[in-house]
C-alpha cells in the first residue's frame, strides 16, 4: 500500500503555489494540506497525481484572527489551532464544538480547516457548520480573489465549486449573534468516526419566539444541506416539542436521495435525520433560553 510516484513541490508562498498550479495540467495536480484524507487515497493509489503541491509551507495561509464581526481562519490553520484558540472559544462555541468532534487529536493536530472544506465529505462536521453559520470561503486563482458562500461552495460528494487553478485561502466564519442557541450532534458507529447522520441547529428567541433559524443535516446525503421547510415551521413560533417533531418530520420527508451503505440504509438515515433534527432543536432552544435570549 504505497503511493505511485509523483513530483513534489512545497512552495513557501501562495503566489508561487498559484504559479505552479497554472503551469501544470490541473487534472494531474493534487493539492496537499494536512493530508488526513488525501494521504490514504495516495497510499491506496486511488489518487495518483503527477504532481503533489504541498501548501503546508505557506505561512501566510495559517492563523486565526478576528475580522468584521467574525473570524478569519487561514485555510492551513489546523484543527488543533482552532481547538487551542481562545478567540474561537469566545466568539464561536459552535465552531469550537464541531472542531472537537472531529476524529481524534492525532488527526486534528495535522488536519486543516481548509482541507476539510475542500474535501467536502458529506459526513464531515466543518462543511455542515459552514453552511449553518453562513461562512464565506475565499479562494485565489489566476483571476484573483473570489468569495464563495458556503451554500454555493459545497456541490455534492467530494465536490466543491472551486475552479481548477484556484486555492482556498481563508474561511470567514461569522460570529454567533448574541443570544443564539445552537447544537451540533451526530451519530457515528464509533466515537470519532464520520457521522452516519449529523445535525446542526441554530436559533434565537425574541420574546420567546424563534427567529433566525438554521437547520442543517449532514452525513445523510450528498452534502450538508439547510432544511428551510423545517426552519419555516418554527420561525415566528414559540418552541414546543410538537413543533420540533413537526420540523423533524419535515426534514425526514424532504431529505433527497439519502445515502445507503453498509452502516445505514437510506430509510434509516432518513429517520435519524428526523431524530437529530428534533434533538438539536431541543438543545438549541435550551441554550437560547439559558443565554437569557
Amino acid at each position: 500500500m504505497k503511493p505511485a510516484p509523483f513530483e513534489y513541490a512545497a512552495p513557501p508562498t501562495l503566489d508561487e503555489a498559484l504559479a505552479i498550479l497554472s503551469e501544470n495540467d490541473p487534472d494531474e495536480v493534487k493539492i496537499l494540506a494536512g493530508g488526513q484524507s488525501l494521504m490514504p487515497l495516495l497510499n491506496m493509489r486511488l489518487a495518483r497525481p503527477e504532481l503533489l503541491l504541498d501548501l503546508t509551507r505557506i505561512d501566510e495561509l495559517g492563523g486565526i484572527s478576528a475580522r468584521n464581526g467574525g473570524l478569519s481562519i487561514g485555510a492551513l490553520a489546523t484543527k488543533r489551532d482552532v481547538e487551542d484558540s481562545a478567540l474561537v472559544r469566545e466568539r464561536n462555541p459552535l465552531f469550537m464544538e464541531s472542531t472537537i468532534m472531529i476524529g481524534h487529536p492525532q488527526i486534528r493536530n495535522r488536519g486543516t480547516v481548509g482541507g476539510s472544506m475542500v474535501q467536502a465529505d458529506p459526513a464531515a462536521e466543518y462543511p455542515a457548520v459552514a453552511v449553518a453559520l453562513g461562512a464565506e470561503l475565499v479562494a485565489r486563482g489566476p483571476g484573483g480573489e473570489r468569495v464563495i458562500e458556503a451554500d454555493d461552495f459545497f456541490i455534492t460528494y467530494l465536490t466543491t465549486s472551486l475552479e481548477p487553478g484556484e486555492i482556498l485561502t481563508e474561511v470567514r466564519i461569522p460570529d454567533l449573534a448574541a443570544g443564539t442557541g445552537w447544537s451540533i450532534q451526530e451519530l457515528a458507529r464509533r466515537h470519532g468516526d464520520f457521522a452516519i447522520v449529523g445535525a446542526v441547529a441554530m436559533l434565537r428567541l425574541e420574546s420567546g419566539i424563534c427567529v433566525d433559524l438554521r437547520v442543517v443535516i449532514f452525513g445523510a446525503s450528498d452534502r450538508a444541506r439547510r432544511h428551510s421547510e423545517a426552519e419555516a415551521l418554527l420561525a415566528g413560533e414559540r418552541p414546543s416539542a410538537a413543533l420540533f417533531d413537526a420540523a423533524g418530520r419535515a426534514v425526514g420527508q424532504s431529505l433527497e436521495d439519502p445515502t445507503d451503505d453498509v452502516h445505514a440504509s437510506a430509510e434509516y438515515r432518513r429517520d435519524l435525520a428526523r431524530v437529530l433534527c428534533v434533538r438539536t432543536l431541543t438543545e438549541a432552544v435550551e441554550r437560547a433560553e439559558g443565554s437569557g435570549g
Binding site: 513534489y8 493530508g35 488526513q36 494521504m39 497510499n43 504541498d54 481524534h104 487529536p105 492525532q106 493536530n109
Partner: peptide
C-alpha cells in the same frame, strides 16, 4: 493500517502526535 485509522504509527512532530503513515 497505512490509512490513518489505527494510530499505531503515531510519532511526535514538533511535539504534536501525528500518523506517520499520513506524512511524507
Amino acid at each position: 493500517c497505512e490509512h490513518g485509522v489505527c494510530g499505531i504509527c503515531n510519532v511526535l512532530i514538533d511535539g504534536r502526535s501525528m500518523r506517520s503513515c499520513l506524512l511524507l
